[in-house]
């Protein structure tokens, strides 16, 4: 077949179609092709966002369609930002976010580093390690409630076996101090494999010749780790942190199944709180303002983070 791909596509285009679009400029044709996507984007993303912003300035309630809707200015925003209960859910979310990311990065990177060393059964171990992230969060939440059960739970039994304490003497999901850690443990168990896989991809992308050159320069293993491995895996690791950070900021299903936000409200993350405001209390205007605040927070933090990520990549 002679000619370039473009020539062949031009030849294969039916003459009547070519003739019909002959009168349009390239710009118009480009718009025609892009228009459906733009329309879809506007309809699915942009319009709801603008509508949500609009609702956030009202006292609208979706369960009262007949009630008059008043514009109340920034009242919803003021209420949210001065509500101590909302700040407590923000604190709970920050605790969850920080510790899950911390443990997942440390354990995920360690596992990836170990898996990357060639040994017998390497593939089997990789498969076993990634199993938890293949499960549904709702299922994971449910069966961990059984594992955490003080009387028959395997987790309590294991802790009791290792420490000698009475298994029914502590309640992982019923204790105010332990419950925030209980959800951190489960999320770490489930999503560390994800971080591990991304780190593994980073580790495997480091060419062997760099280590060989370092060996020739008599660099120690420790120095190789800190000056080659860590810097070259860092962009991958930061990407994993970005993904997990965004996911965990909006964490809902797993925690709802596990603790329902309790005991009291100590594990009530912002997404759970938002859902209650929007679809249980039906304070639609208030919940819209809440959603906008969360959106701006995530968007702002993610933007700063992506900039940092790009800087790391450029180094």
């Amino acid at each position: 077949m002679p000619g370039t791909i473009a020539d062949r596509v031009a030849q294969a285009t039916p003459p009547h179609l070519a003739g019909r679009i002959k009168g349009f400029s390239d710009r118009t044709i480009a718009w025609i092709f892009v228009a459906p996507t733009i329309f879809l984007l506007l309809a699915v993303n942009i319009f709801p966002l603008i509508w949500t912003i609009n609702l956030s300035f009202t006292n609208f309630r979706a369960n009262r369609p007949n009630r008059e809707v008043d514009y109340i200015g920034l009242r919803n925003y003021e209420r949210i930002l001065t509500d101590s209960d909302i700040w407590l859910t923000m604190q709970a979310t920050a605790h969850f976010l920080f510790w899950t990311l911390f443990f997942q990065v440390v354990i995920g990177f360690t596992l990836a580093w170990l898996i990357n060393r060639k040994f017998k059964g390497n593939d089997l171990w990789t498969t076993i390690i990634v199993l938890p992230m293949m499960l549904s969060p709702a299922v994971v939440g449910n069966f961990w409630t059984f594992l955490y059960q003080p009387q028959i739970g395997l987790f309590n039994y294991l802790v009791a076996f290792l420490t000698g304490v009475d298994p029914s003497s502590f309640q992982m999901i019923g204790d105010v101090v332990l419950a925030p850690w209980a959800i951190v443990i489960v999320d770490t168990w489930m999503w560390t494999p994800f971080v591990m896989l991304i780190c593994l991809a980073g580790l495997r992308s480091i060419p062997d010749y760099i280590y060989e050159a370092a060996e020739i320069d008599r660099a120690s293993k420790w120095r190789q780790f800190w000056t080659i491995t860590v810097p070259m895996v860092l962009p991958f690791l930061m990407l994993a942190v970005l993904f997990r950070g965004i996911e965990n900021f909006k964490m809902f299903d797993l925690v709802v199944q596990l603790t329902g936000g309790g005991p009291g409200s100590v594990t009530e993350l912002t997404s759970i709180n938002l859902k209650r405001e929007a679809f249980e209390k039906w304070r639609t205007g208030y919940a819209s303002a809440y959603a906008i605040i969360l959106f701006v927070t995530v968007f702002g933090l993610a933007s700063i983070y992506v900039k940092a990520l790009n800087k790391v990549k450029e180094r």
Partner: peptide, 23 residues
Amino acid sequence: EPAYAELLLAMQKRLHDYVVADV
């Protein structure tokens, strides 16, 4: 009341905070 769900959730929170979570 028509706002019963909102009233109920508030009571759920306050009671659970006090009884179970020792707040």
